[in-house]
């Protein structure tokens, strides 16, 4: 083990980053595959049916079967589609979904971070990259050249922009408390108390906006299948559809990671249970958040679109602003 560490320390930076990226990509894709399976299983249990249970024991090989199906499917491009943008859009979604993992730290070992890059403006970079993600949906819906995808993408753009504001504001509350924009620094600042306690309103706002940002139930107006067929990805099939699908789940995972880092103490152990390594705590917290997400999907019906926008602008944004002002005031008065 020591020999391995010594070799890695001697390796050039680009090689280390390459290896780390490849490993992380593998982990994220595997997590995506099984998050999807678990979601279907959990939905099944909550609706009193077995869920996928044919492929492999307990349906464990279902993701592989799904992947094979998507790869073998015919890739259709509608005649009315814009050929370049139609092909570009899934890539934008996929790349932005994965790119954020360049700055997310997962744990710490003797002062060295388990992350690809330790960026000191980490949270800002995360916001920047994920704010690009909307282009995939927006361009994809437009480029399909048919009405339902266009409606879906217009909804997506409006919704994501509206909720992004409140989401950023809930971040700023945490940044004020932590006094740093580095993700590792924010986790360190939570050593004594996790930020979801002083920032309970901020956490609530974040959870709501996070669901809206990833276009999940009850905010999945973007792909409301009862009115828009499939929403922005109606015309997509095969791997291109798969890209959007992967991006959605990877975004869910990202949102869970951010919640863990900003509000749930990152890899800090609760109640002094430090015999369990930090990385496991991180995984458990992310897992709990993902489960919460799936629970929401199994429980809540969809919003009406005008109510969604009214809620975002008239309730969520003022609440987030108020939370931010009060937090700033308290921190300033405490000096």
């Amino acid at each position: 083990m020591d020999a391995l560490v010594a070799t890695l320390n001697a390796a050039p930076l680009w090689l280390v980053i390459l290896i780390k990226s490849a490993l992380l990509l593998l982990v994220v894709v595997t997590t995506f595959a099984y998050a999807m399976l678990f979601e279907r299983k959990i939905l099944g249990w909550m609706q009193l049916r077995p869920g996928p249970n044919r492929v492999g024991p307990w349906g464990l090989l279902q993701p592989a079967a799904d992947a094979a199906k998507l790869i073998l499917k015919e890739d259709l491009t509608p005649k009315t589609a814009d050929p370049l943008i139609y092909r570009l859009a899934p890539f934008i979604s996929l790349i932005t979904a994965f790119a954020v993992y360049a700055v997310i730290p997962f744990g710490e070992n003797n002062g060295s971070l388990w992350a690809i890059g330790d960026v000191n403006a980490g949270i800002l970079l995360l916001m920047a990259i994920s704010s690009i993600g909307v282009y995939g949906i927006s361009l994809g819906g437009w480029a399909s050249g048919s009405k339902y995808p266009l409606l879906g993408s217009v909804r997506a753009t409006a919704q994501m922009i509206s909720y992004e504001l409140s989401m950023s504001m809930s971040f700023v509350g945490v940044l004020i408390l932590a006094g740093t924009t580095s993700l590792a620094g924010i986790v360190h600042a939570q050593a004594s108390m996790w930020f979801f306690i002083p920032q309970c309103f901020g956490f609530l706002i974040y959870v709501i906006t996070a669901v809206a940002e990833t276009n999940r139930t009850p905010f999945d107006l973007v792909e409301a299948e009862t009115e828009l067929v499939g929403g922005f990805h109606t015309e997509y099939s095969g791997l291109r559809f798969g890209s959007f699908f992967i991006a959605e789940y990877v975004n869910m995972l990202t949102v869970a990671c951010i919640a863990t880092l900003l509000f749930l103490g990152g890899w800090n152990a609760p109640f002094g249970l430090t015999m369990i390594p930090g990385i496991l705590w991180f995984v458990m917290k992310v897992g709990a958040f993902l489960f919460f997400y799936m629970w929401l999907r199994a429980t809540l019906p969809r919003f009406r679109y005008d109510r969604l926008m009214a809620f975002g602008w008239k309730i969520l944004l003022p609440a987030a602003t108020l939370n931010l002002i009060i937090t700033a005031l308290i921190v300033a008065l405490r000096g």
């Binding site: 920047a128 690009i132 282009y135 927006s138 437009w142």
Partner: peptide, 16 residues
Amino acid sequence: IVYSGAILVLFLFVIA
């Protein structure tokens, strides 16, 4: 965040 994530998205919204 400001230009690509907000302003340009609105451009696209209007154009689309």
